[in-house]
Design a protein around this nucleic acid. Sequence first.
DNA 1: CGCATTCTACGAATCATTTCGTATAATGCG
DNA 2: CGCATTATACGAAATGATTCGTAGAATGCG
Lengths: 129, 129
Amino acid sequence: MRSKAMEQKPTNSEVDILSVLWRLGPSSVREVYEDMNQRREIGYTTVLKLMQIMFEKGLVTRNEDSRAHIYSPLQAQADTQRTLIDDLVERAFGGSAHKLALNALSSKKATPEELAEIRSLLDHLEEQK
Amino acid sequence: MRSKAMEQKPTNSEVDILSVLWRLGPSSVREVYEDMNQRREIGYTTVLKLMQIMFEKGLVTRNEDSRAHIYSPLQAQADTQRTLIDDLVERAFGGSAHKLALNALSSKKATPEELAEIRSLLDHLEEQK
DNA sequence: CGCATTCTACGAATCATTTCGTATAATGCG
DNA sequence: CGCATTATACGAAATGATTCGTAGAATGCG
């Protein structure tokens, strides 16, 4: 039983766009387009259409005060990330989030600060037992 | 520059099938079908077709000695998982694997043993500095 | 042997996602 | 004002993933 409405998993392209919005903050289609287009070739109206669809789906809101609408994610970044993680954990890690964490940590160059951050989280988790 | 050929990211259905193979070991289409069909409704020939496509793509091998071919993953489980994690990290975590790890660990009920396992990994990682 | 069962192969429908062309409205500037 | 530029909206093609029907070959059993 969940208290919130089930959050739908965004498609790959939708995640790409959310990522830009997370990084840039509320943005116009053009701004998102400019950013995305640096990483991979994509047309302006393609981005526009995607964002319109996301608006219809309720993945983003938009402010229509100015001619160029300004889009913002509707869900918190962490919530969307959680949805994506849960899906991957379920599908490829037999439901075990810690296995995913283990795999993500190993062999990836993390700074000492980042490792410390994780330690800190572990301490926190154990306290709560 | 990678030493190995670029590993293609399996589709969702393909990951589902790989998951079954990881769990059951080398299996026939029917075995995979039986298992998968318990979780979600899916037709036998659908599974067959998927596995045939995976064979063509080089995601799995198969032993054709017996009439019912026996399929096995071609890549190590950990490698495939790594591919999936990398993709998600890139797409939704701004390239930061440790952020994904943090998110995966927090709020998920992990056993003390699992937490210890992660600590142990951290120790290991820090030693290598 | 002859039939029911179980396989593989394969084409093609269906469905989801991504892509973009075109129409048209708003804006800004010389 | 009139034109170039930049928006949105929208339909629909293109692509990718999933699904399944059907055909025909192998197997096993009475």
